[in-house]
Structures are given as C-alpha cells and as structure tokens.
C-alpha cells in the first residue's frame, strides 16, 4: 500500500493560518492503514488547528470529514455541497488524492496534509518499509521475490556491489543489502543459477523515466 507520514504540524499551520474556514479531509484508504491521514488523523489535526486559532484569538471554523477513497471521483463528489463553505481544504490523502481533489474542485485551494513516501508493507505498527517502486515491469520471478529496484540503494540489476557488508547496505547499517537478500532467497529456493546470469539493461520506459503513465484496459472500459 501507499505509505505516508503526517506533515509537521507547523507546516500545516503555516499553510492555513490566514484562512478562517478550513476543511480537513481524511482518506479511509492507504493512509489510514499507516495512520497518517485517516478519519482519526483528520480529527486530531482539526482539533490542533482549532486550539491554534482559538489561542491566537481568531474566530475560525475548522471541520473534518473523511472519504472512503480520494482517488475516485464518486467519493470526492460527496464533498460537492460542502466545498463552498470553506476557504481552503487540507487533504490527508496521498499525492494522488490531493491532486484528484484539486482537479475536481478547480477553484478551491487544496493543500496536502501528509508527505507521501512509498509503496510498502507494515512490518509492525509504526514501522513501514518500501518494497516496490512501481517500475511497470515486474522482475520478482527472476530475483527470488526480492526487488532489486526497490531494495538495492543503487537499484543494481547485477548486485550486490562491493559495499555489501554483513548483509547490510553501504549507506546504513539499518538497511539490509537487497542483493544479499536475493542471493539468500535464491539459495533457499535452489535457484542460484539465476544469480550468475548477467541481467541486461532494464527497459525503464514503463517506469517514471518514460513520463507520466496511464493504464488503458479496453477489456474493462465501457
């Protein structure tokens, strides 16, 4: 799922401090799971903003709501009769949700309330780790189910580099060497022959490098 962290409160305060009617919109999708932007976080942020405005002696209306998902028009449309009542909206969705809301409510000021980080897993509550970079052409079948694009700091396709030390990456002792993980997994699976086969340069056109991406599924579209 998409992983995000709440923006520092002072950053949000700075964005909205000159408004008097602000709506905080949580998203019940990915950002709820990593506790960055769900309905709960929307309530906390709204309360914090109310405290801020009140102590500053400013009359302000700060409300919160949350949508099932902000990356779909149907859910965003649920805000249509509310929007006029606010000067600005803080969306706690990932970057997709913020942009989609801004597309739908073209004249409204929409600010992001979280920093969207990566596609990852929940290792524990409060510990999320990257696993996928959405390169558009999955090679996990060749790499023992461990992605070198997401998990090697140099995104090498023929690793590990000489910086791998005791299973850790040269950039930090807290970062496992992705290629050592691949090697170990291939060994476990009895597929070490794959390890010695040079991998050709990757086609990056389906990744970020190829420009903004679209999926067109004619089998699904009406």
């Amino acid at each position: 799922m998409i992983k995000a962290v709440p923006k520092p409160l002072e950053e949000v305060l700075d964005l909205v401090k000159d408004f008097t009617k602000v709506l905080i919109v949580g998203c019940d999708g990915c950002v709820t799971v990593c506790e960055a932007g769900g309905s709960k976080e929307a309530k906390v942020l709204a309360s914090a903003l109310r405290l801020y405005f009140t102590q500053a002696g400013k009359q302000a209306q700060i409300d919160e709501t949350s949508l099932t998902r902000q990356c779909e028009k149907e859910y965003l449309a649920q805000l249509s009769d509310k929007m006029d009542a606010y000067d600005a909206v803080v969306s706690l969705a990932c970057g997709c949700g913020v942009q989609y809301m801004a597309e739908m409510y073209n004249n409204k000021i929409i600010y992001p309330g979280v920093d969207t980080c990566f596609l990852g897993v929940n290792e524990e509550r409060g510990l999320y780790a990257e696993r996928c970079q959405a390169c558009g052409r999955c090679i996990l079948a060749e790499t023992g189910g461990v992605c070198p694009i997401a998990r090697c700091s140099k995104r090498m396709l023929n690793g590990p580099c000489g910086g791998s030390d005791q299973g850790k990456c040269e950039i930090s002792k807290d970062v496992p060497c992705g290629w050592e993980l691949i090697y170990e997994r291939l060994k476990t699976l009895g597929q070490l022959d794959r390890f010695e086969k040079p991998v050709d340069p990757k086609d990056w056109t389906t990744s970020r490098d190829g420009g903004p991406r679209t999926i067109v599924r004619e089998d699904l579209r009406i």
Binding site: P201, K202, D203, W204, T205, D209
Partner: peptide, 8 residues
C-alpha cells in the same frame, strides 16, 4: 533519442 528505454 537512440536509447528510449534508458533511465533519466
């Protein structure tokens, strides 16, 4: 260009 598949 001549390397359309490369990273940028």
């Amino acid at each position: 260009g001549d390397h359309p598949k490369c990273a940028n």
